[in-house]
């Protein structure tokens, strides 16, 4: 590890910290200062006014705004994200973390992995090969990328789930109280995941494919590839050389989409009744559960910052051209 790299790391790390702090301030601004009274939806409007006052006091919403901000900072420092307005008495951390986050991370990581592998390899192949198959695949995937994900979800659920009966309609499991061996439990879980996974893969694959394909087909014409060809390297070896560029493209997209890993897919999770963070986000919006929304927002910021930081390190190793200069992105 060179000194240059160490400097780069520290530099980036401080940037990440600053961004996270700015994000946390933004969250406070969004949730407390924007028009719209966060207390207005606090609990059932039919409860007597005295009881409301009591609750507002308990949530610290009656204090002046700067005191609220100090309280907010202090609470965050202690890892306290507040309490849900809807699930009365449940801390936000408990609402988000646990089952919901697990479901989302499993679903999203498999979807992103599947589509990254599928999209990158196809893109690499087609970009390198060119010609008719390339045109066919590229136009098909552009078409796929144009279909709204919620619409595709509806159709897949209806045809695969209902008409053909291949996948379960909704939920994450069929066993709620039975004692079943672990492998059956896991298989059942995976079976429930097939529908959402197909939808998400159809959504993500074009992203990787199109980007990688363009990068590769650009590189194909560059001097060093032509030189390699002239030296008489086999196509396969040239492909391996080029795949480095494809990998950079893939890492870039993964870094850009990484936040979805924890926030999940709102449409897909809602349609397939997948009990994840995406659906929680939607439910919380409908019920105006501001503390939970804020929690999800903060979580997103932390994950995005971490992912960007990680991607920066990866770039350093993947692309010798990019040093401290910065990164090339879309």
């Amino acid at each position: 590890m060179s000194r240059e790299f160490a400097y780069y790391l520290v530099h980036r790390f401080f940037q990440v910290i600053v961004i996270v702090i700015l994000g946390f301030i933004a969250a406070f601004v969004i949730f407390r200062l924007l028009p719209g009274d966060p207390t207005i939806s606090l609990l059932d409007p039919r409860i007597p006014p005295e009881a409301r006052e009591e609750l507002i006091k308990r949530f610290g919403l009656d204090k002046p705004i700067y005191e609220q901000f100090l309280l907010y900072v202090a609470n965050l420092a202690r890892g306290d994200f507040g309490y849900s307005f809807v699930y009365i008495g449940t801390p936000v951390v408990e609402v988000i973390f646990g089952e919901r986050l697990f479901n989302t991370v499993v679903l999203m990581s498999s979807a992103m992995l599947t589509s990254a592998i599928l999209g990158t390899s196809l893109g690499l192949l087609m970009g390198f090969r060119g010609g008719f198959p390339d045109k066919l695949f590229t136009s098909t995937l552009y078409l796929l990328a144009s279909a709204p994900v919620f619409w595709v979800g509806l159709l897949i659920q209806f045809y695969l789930g209902y008409r053909l009966g291949l996948i379960p309609i909704a939920g994450t499991t069929s066993f709620y109280f039975e004692e079943v061996p672990l492998h059956i439990l896991v298989l059942d879980y995976v079976h429930h995941m097939v529908g959402p996974l197909i939808v998400l893969t159809m959504f993500f694959t074009p992203l990787y494919y199109i980007y990688v394909r363009n990068v590769v087909s650009n590189v194909r014409g560059e001097d060093f590839v032509l030189t390699l060809k002239a030296i008489g390297l086999s196509d396969l070896r040239i492909l391996l050389r080029i795949s480095r560029f494809a990998l950079i493209a893939t890492v870039t997209i993964i870094a850009n989409e990484s936040a979805l890993l924890v926030v999940g897919a709102v449409f897909t999770e809602t349609i397939f009744g997948w009990n994840g963070v995406g659906r929680l986000l939607y439910d919380s919006i409908l019920k105006a559960d501001y503390p939970v929304l804020q929690g999800i927002f903060l979580l997103t910021i932390v994950v995005v910052a971490t992912a960007n930081f990680t991607a920066d390190i990866l770039y350093y190793f993947l692309d010798p051209r990019i040093k401290v200069r910065g990164l090339a992105r879309r």
């Binding site: 209902y162 309609i169 909704a170 939920g171 809602t270 397939f272 009744g273």
Partner: peptide, 21 residues
Amino acid sequence: TIVVRVIPEAETRFLAIKRGE
């Protein structure tokens, strides 16, 4: 045993009943 399942969409609930879930 009573199992209460949360299925947010009306259409999905009906499909789940039809499928016997």
